[in-house]
Amino acid sequence: MATSDKLIQVKNLKKHYNEGVIKAIDDVTVDINRGDVMVVIGPSGSGKSTFLRSLNLLEVPDSGSIIFEGVDITQPKGPDGKKLNLDVHRQKMGMVFQHFNLFPHKTILQNMTLAPMKVKGLPQAEAEAKALELLGRVGLADRANAYPIQLSGGQKQRVAIVRALAMEPDVMLFDEPTSALDPEMVGEVLDVMKELAAAGMTMVVVTHEMGFAREVGNRVLFMADGKLLEEGSPEDIFEHPQNPRLKDFLSKVLR
């Protein structure tokens, strides 16, 4: 699936906190191609989350640009000269969070149909049929009328993934999707992500699961201190690391 078709171009991205004392992202430039499964690794506080959250502008960068499907979404105005409607672009980028962030006052089905109905204007019946089909794919169709509180962590995260998929995004962003899970539930979530990758979805995944990075990723980014220090295929990164920071990091996580 991987072609050279650029889906997201990140150019000279910078994000500082505390008047520049903390450089959460320090001049990062990278292209994400359609069909890529890009895994972002690095030590805690290296800026992985900030980078990922900048892609859909949950975090507004201080400078640099994010060009998504040809449109620079960091600009106040779109290519047509009118005010840029960020929501239009955001709905094409699904996001999965460490803590699931399901809506607790809504059933699983309502969680999944809210955005398709309110944002895309899908009729309820259609939105529900689609939601049930997606839930079936992750083995949770029978939980459609349950509330999030009634599900296990692994089930919640699978719902969160298909909730994002219900908007038919062009790319899926994952921020440590398995870090809040009990170990026995990590596998079921990773399996869903693997299937998604196999189906050709473009994915950017921040994770500490090095096995997943190796097996599923086609590109790996290593970040430290807000900088993109090394980039390559899983083989490059894990078998032939160059940067001493990366070697040090790997020696700690791959014991």
Binding site: L58, G94, H105, K118
Partner: peptide
Amino acid sequence: DGGQTEAARSLGLNAVQTMRFVVLPQAIK
């Protein structure tokens, strides 16, 4: 929780929809 707003916005809901369908129902309770 701020994660509720982030989840809603990342699904494409605008600020008013997010307040109305996600934040306020939980806040009022």
